[in-house]
Each structure stands twice: as structure tokens, then as C-alpha cells.
Computed example of a mutant assay.
Amino acid sequence: MKVVVDEEKCVAAGQCVAAAMDVFDQREDDGIVVLLDENPPAELAEDVRTAATVCPALAIRLEE
């Protein structure tokens, strides 16, 4: 799985961090998503899928 984020779409809701904190973080100054691991391990796949699903801006895309 490869994770791609679109920072331009991000609305800084933080749902991705809540769902998969090992893969996503937020910039301190504006809360925009920071991708920590674009190729997360298989054991985090479900959390990453959840993060993509709950993102209100649809700023996370998964390539499987």
C-alpha cells in the first residue's frame, strides 16, 4: 500500500491522526496533514484505510 496526501485539499480536521497516528501527523502552525510513512506496514493497513475514509476533505488516496 502506498499513501498519497493532497495538502492543498487538507482542512486540518485531524481525523487521519486519530485513526493512524503512526502514519499521519499535523503541522503545528496550521494543522495540515504530514505523511510520516508513505508505505506503512501491513499491520497498519486497516487504520490507514479508516483514515482515508474519515477524511472530510478526501485528501488521502491509497494505491494498493
Rank of each mutant, 00 (worst) to 15 (best):
Leu62Trp: 09
Gln15Phe: 15
Met1Lys: 02
Asn39Arg: 13
Glu8Lys: 07
Ala13Tyr: 10
Ala52Leu: 06
Gly31Thr: 14
Phe24Trp: 02
Leu35Gln: 09
Ala57Ile: 13
Lys2Phe: 00
Ala45Cys: 01
Met1Thr: 01
Pro40Phe: 08
Ala57Gln: 11
Arg27Asp: 02
Met1Gly: 08
Glu7Gly: 08
Met21Leu: 01
Ala19Asn: 08
Gly31Asn: 12
Lys2Ile: 02
Leu44Met: 14
Asp30His: 06
Pro40Trp: 03
Gln15Gly: 14
Cys16Lys: 03
Val17Asp: 02
Ala18Lys: 12
Arg27Tyr: 04
Lys9Phe: 03
Asn39Tyr: 06
Glu28Ser: 04
Ala20Leu: 08
Thr50Trp: 05
Pro41Gln: 00
Val33Ser: 04
Asp30Phe: 03
Val23Ala: 07
Asp6His: 10
Pro41Cys: 00
Asp25Trp: 09
Val5Asn: 06
Ala45Arg: 14
Glu28Leu: 06
Ile60Val: 10
Ala57Arg: 12
Pro56Arg: 06
Leu44Val: 05
Pro40Leu: 04
Gln26Glu: 07
Cys55Leu: 08
Asp29Gln: 10
Arg49Trp: 14
Leu44Pro: 05
Gln26Asn: 00
Ala59Leu: 08
Leu44Phe: 11
Ala19Val: 02
Val54Leu: 03
Glu63Cys: 00
Val17Gly: 05
Leu44Cys: 03
Ala18Arg: 10
Ala52Ser: 06
Arg49Gln: 15
Leu44Thr: 07
Arg61Ser: 14
Arg61Ile: 09
Val54Gln: 01
Asp25Glu: 13
Cys10Glu: 09
Gly14Leu: 14
Val54Glu: 08
Val3Ile: 10
Asp22Glu: 14
Asp6Thr: 12
Val4Leu: 11
Asp22Leu: 13
Glu64Arg: 06
Ala42Ser: 05
Thr53Val: 05
Gly31Leu: 09
Leu36Gln: 07
Ala20Gln: 00
Ala42Lys: 14
Gln26Ile: 00
Ile32Phe: 12
Glu38Asn: 10
Asp47Arg: 11
Asp47Tyr: 02
Lys9Ser: 07
Cys16Phe: 00
Arg61Cys: 00
Leu36Arg: 05
Asp29Ile: 07
Asp37His: 02
Val11Gly: 09
Met21His: 10
Asp29Val: 04
Val11Gln: 15
Phe24Val: 04
Val33Phe: 04
Phe24Tyr: 11
Thr53Trp: 11
Pro40Tyr: 02
Val48Asn: 02
Met1Pro: 07
Glu46Ser: 13
Ile60Ala: 01
Ala52Pro: 10
Lys2Gly: 00
Ile32Asp: 08
Asp6Ile: 02
Cys55Asn: 08
Met1Ser: 04
Val4Asp: 07
Ala13Met: 06
Glu8Arg: 04
Leu58Asn: 15
Asp29Lys: 10
Thr53Gln: 15
Ala45Thr: 11
Ala13Val: 09
Glu7Pro: 11
Asp25Phe: 05
Asp30Lys: 03
Val4Ala: 11
Gly14Tyr: 04
Leu44Gln: 12
Ala51Pro: 14
Ala45Pro: 00
Leu35Ser: 11
Lys2Val: 05
Glu43Arg: 01
Asp47His: 09
Met21Thr: 01
Ile60Arg: 09
Ala12Thr: 12
Leu58His: 15
Cys10Asn: 14
Lys9Leu: 14
Ile60Cys: 05
Asp37Trp: 06
Asp47Asn: 09
Ile60Glu: 13
Gln26Pro: 05
Cys55Val: 05
Asp37Lys: 09
Ala20Phe: 12
Glu38Lys: 11
Ala45Glu: 12
